[in-house]
Design a protein around this nucleic acid. Sequence first.
DNA 1: TTTCTGAATTAGACAAAGTCCAATCATTGA
DNA 2: TCAATGATTGGACTTTGTCTAATTCAGAAA
Lengths: 147, 147
Amino acid sequence: MEAMPYSRPALIALLRRHGIAPTHQRLEIAQVLFARCQHLSAEQILAQVNERHAETSKATVYNTLKLFCERGLVREVIVDPKRVFYDPNTSPHHHMYNIDSGEITDIPAESLSLNAMPELPEGMVTEGVDIIVRVRTPDAVGQGRLG
Amino acid sequence: MEAMPYSRPALIALLRRHGIAPTHQRLEIAQVLFARCQHLSAEQILAQVNERHAETSKATVYNTLKLFCERGLVREVIVDPKRVFYDPNTSPHHHMYNIDSGEITDIPAESLSLNAMPELPEGMVTEGVDIIVRVRTPDAVGQGRLG
DNA sequence: TTTCTGAATTAGACAAAGTCCAATCATTGA
DNA sequence: TCAATGATTGGACTTTGTCTAATTCAGAAA
């Protein structure tokens, strides 16, 4: 048994700290999100949560992800027009998105920073800056010799 | 009559230059995109194209936008999980997205640049870097005194 | 001008992601 | 324990986008 940074009691404490009542379903969803720190879509989370026999509905997964976002437990990653991904890492960082595989990886905030911020229109407030580096595996395009 | 940078013959030439046969529908769509240089969704383009009496189908709008993207006439802007926007400005620049109004504005490339690029995994190639500055109008949130 | 052919367009069925609602169920403070 | 508040649920619904087979068009050649 390896390092288990998010045991059940730790998850309960985490939710409580964010003002979230720790229901069974929310704990299951948190478990999936924080176990391996991946970027998952709502559908993937739904599948993983129900895989381990517990029954959680689609509506609850969406409700919970929205709640987790509002309370700053996870962050939405918008890189693919088809679905939103949820990132359990809320510390400042950016993303690399592999167009071919759909894989998302984190880029540490330090390794990629802006040297200027544009002046905002009057009364506007910055909510956040997303930087997305889109990458490809050239072999996967054109006539790669994979055959 | 004001400056008309994209007259019909200019649009025909533009499409031809990108290897696109200038059909009636494609010209209508190009017209809408290039007339005012806005960021429009497929549905907005469909509506605007058909507003001026011409009949163009949904399928054609989607087909055409995909084609325009492939040929580098327009660029997809992915900032809103609900829909893709199309940007007729393909020169290097970034975007400011108003979360409240849904409005997208361009940020000149010069006013916002990266001071380092992360090293890519072996065999990966950068396809592009998107920078999105998400902004809000604080009045629109919380208990603004708008009443 | 007419004919021909591949390309473009079309309506509408379909798919996927996400939302909504009214009914049911759990949690928790007293 | 019990009630009340909040959470969960299934399933219908919406929206954005895709697909397909049939039709129509553009424009080259005669």
